[in-house]
Amino acid sequence: MSEHPELVARVEVDTARYPSLAGRSVLVTGGGSGIGASLVEHFCAQDCRVGFIDLDATVAAGCADVIAAKTGNRPAYAVADLRDIPALQGAIAELAARLGPFTVLVNNAGNDDRRPIEAVTPEYWDERQATNLRHQFFAAQAVLEGMEATGGGSIINMGSISWMRGAAGLIFYTTAKSAIMGMTKSLARELGERNIRVNSIAPGWVLTERQVVRAKAIYQGKFAEYLEAQCLKEHLLPPDIARMALFLAAEDSRLITAQTFIVDGGVV
């Protein structure tokens, strides 16, 4: 049980099983915590061969232990800073050598730290684009050969509704996340003839442990404020995003590509 009651879903539901995912090799970036850890867990529960990349070796090892205990399926992981593209490429190659060519990629890694506009330097701007956008393209590039060799695949990019709402205090983040929609459409057009589908998910405010701690420390009252903006009066949790990713990875969505799916409880 989480120490934060906001992270406990009000209703437990039976969720779908996707036979087409069983045995498939899946790569998740930023998979050690938050939404990424939920993605890894959900794909492991579908009997996939899952690999993930994380910046923190201790966090990654702990995540793999927890998911193995919960699902009986231990994910593999590699440690890399995704801002370092050669390191990212090396981590993907390492995991593919262990798990086989990836037919599903979930470009999840990102960071939505805030900074006032006056404090944004050119160096910080470039670092935020490297953190939230650039690696998504190069991860997709790195898995293309394996996907094509196995007959196709599914790439899922993680966007955000923050840019749709014009969120303040993180313009460098909203700029990157808005670009993901354009990148998704162009990749889908370019890769469709290779039977590779490319879609993106734009989550609303998803309550992870990190977000809850930060909200309670900095944004008092934001829980109620955000629920007021939602049509559905229940906090979004990481599994809500992971279940959309499962659908987009499975053959159930075989003719869906170039789309962005908003999962936000009805905010935008």
Score class of each variant (00 low, 15 high):
residue 205 W to D: 09
residue 76 A to E: 15
residue 43 F to K: 05
residue 27 L to Y: 03
residue 29 T to I: 07
residue 62 G to M: 06
residue 177 K to I: 00
residue 226 Y to M: 08
residue 182 G to Q: 12
residue 229 A to P: 00
residue 215 A to N: 14
residue 38 S to R: 02
residue 140 A to C: 15
residue 257 T to I: 11
residue 244 M to T: 13
residue 121 T to Q: 07
residue 24 R to V: 04
residue 68 A to S: 13
residue 138 F to S: 06
residue 134 R to F: 09
residue 199 N to W: 03
residue 185 K to W: 01
residue 102 F to Y: 02
residue 112 D to C: 03
residue 14 D to S: 14
residue 52 F to G: 10
residue 83 R to H: 04
residue 264 D to P: 11
residue 234 E to W: 07
residue 98 R to C: 01
residue 69 A to E: 15
residue 59 V to W: 06
residue 216 K to P: 02
residue 221 G to K: 06
residue 181 M to D: 09
residue 20 S to T: 15
residue 186 S to C: 10
residue 190 E to M: 12
residue 56 D to Q: 08
residue 10 R to P: 00
residue 156 I to R: 03
residue 189 R to Y: 10
residue 172 F to N: 09
residue 12 E to F: 07
residue 155 I to W: 02
residue 100 G to H: 01
residue 243 R to K: 12
residue 235 H to P: 08
residue 10 R to Y: 08
residue 64 A to D: 07
residue 204 G to L: 02
residue 128 R to I: 06
residue 70 K to R: 15
residue 257 T to P: 03
residue 206 V to F: 05
residue 147 M to Y: 01
residue 50 V to N: 02
residue 95 L to M: 11
residue 105 L to I: 03
residue 20 S to F: 04
residue 86 P to S: 13
residue 135 H to T: 10
residue 39 L to I: 10
residue 139 A to M: 06
residue 206 V to D: 00
residue 158 M to I: 11
residue 44 C to T: 09
residue 1 M to E: 07
residue 105 L to N: 04
residue 58 T to C: 00
residue 176 A to Q: 03
residue 125 W to S: 09
residue 132 N to Y: 00
residue 19 P to M: 03
residue 239 P to E: 10
residue 263 V to M: 04
residue 142 A to V: 02
residue 91 A to H: 10
residue 6 E to Y: 11
residue 156 I to S: 02
residue 166 G to D: 03
residue 253 S to G: 04
residue 109 A to D: 06
residue 37 A to W: 01
residue 162 S to N: 11
residue 121 T to A: 10
residue 119 A to L: 14
residue 219 Y to G: 08
residue 127 E to D: 14
residue 69 A to L: 09
residue 194 R to Q: 15
residue 216 K to Y: 10
residue 137 F to E: 04
residue 250 A to M: 07
residue 63 C to N: 12
residue 220 Q to E: 15
residue 209 E to P: 09
residue 165 R to Q: 12
residue 22 A to W: 06
residue 140 A to L: 08
residue 246 L to R: 08
